[in-house]
Amino acid sequence: MRAGVLVFPGSNCDRDLAVAFRAAGFDVSMVWHKDSALPDNLDIVGIPGGFSYGDYLRCGAIAAKSPICRAVADHAGRGGYVLGICNGFQVLTETGLLPGALLRNAGLKYICRTEQLRVATTASAFTETYGAGDLIDIPIAHHDGNYFADDDTLARLHGEDRVAFTYADNPNGSVDDIAGILSQNRRVLGMMPHPERAADPVSGGTDGTALFRALAGALAPA
């Protein structure tokens, strides 16, 4: 199984994400933002957290127009898997691979703490190792994590069971407590919380490991 982790100027969770993928059994390549092609035969692309391009203009907006993101859109268009975490989620909404947008936190403050999430669907390659409704502890660290989508989009997300995670105690004003969503084909997940920061007991919890274990199970060669 092969994972590629994108690296933008300002990415700061790229190596953590690589460690979490490797621990689950993936071979990991780091992929520079100026590359116009992904390595061959990637099973999944990880878009890490951080502050790509200094969050200039809008979080994720400049990264979304980088050469590598065109390759990621093609990969997703072919049915490839993509995991966008924090800034990676913002990049995915800016590319249009996921609907909605991430606004400034309702309380205007950067929030860095562990939050309780509810697993809203287990019907995905990212979440099938969890139980429906499980409460898991995953860190958040963001200033712009306030998920917004119009009513039609929300109805579609709920109707198609595409809300992956919700906050048990909404920290940032996200509509319907949404913390992470899936694409229509359920192969692209964007989430503001950081499962890769809860993937090793020495770094404060392991509730995120099941997500990487789920991916390894789903993407393992038959």
């Binding site: 809008r58 909404t93 909605g100 606004l103």
Partner: peptide
Amino acid sequence: EQLLANTVI
């Protein structure tokens, strides 16, 4: 349309 504004919001 393509960069300066995010027309979702």
